[in-house]
């Protein structure tokens, strides 16, 4: 029964706004960094920042941090399968088109 009444304490407005500020800050950083030539690291940094941003969104806006643990497991499985698939695809690509 208790599950439906959402008895957990409700997150405050303040936390959301802080998270949002963080997201906007990270966006500024990633745009700014794109101006520099980071040699091979451009993609890596851009993706790293994007991952941090999406972690913020899932954990706070989507409440995964405080929600039932089953969702964390689900998300993990979903991401794991996606990564495995993309890695296996690249075993074909990287050997078929070796980098010069």
């Amino acid at each position: 029964m208790s599950e439906n009444t959402h008895t957990q304490e409700h997150p405050g407005y303040g936390l959301y706004i802080v998270v949002w500020a963080g997201l906007v800050g990270l966006t500024t950083i990633t745009v700014a960094l794109a101006g520099f030539n980071l040699v091979g690291l451009t993609v890596v940094t851009a993706l790293a920042i994007a991952i941090v941003k999406s972690l913020l969104v899932t954990n706070y806006f989507m409440h995964v941090k405080t929600d039932s643990a089953v969702f964390k497991v689900f998300i993990f499985v979903c991401i794991a399968i996606f990564l495995v698939v993309i890695i296996l695809t690249f075993f074909d690509l990287t050997y078929r088109f070796p980098l010069k």
Partner: peptide
């Protein structure tokens, strides 16, 4: 899944 593509020219490693 790659075993459906053995003869299509995917890389030997894969």
């Amino acid at each position: 899944w790659g075993h459906h593509m053995f003869s299509t020219g995917i890389s030997d490693t894969s």
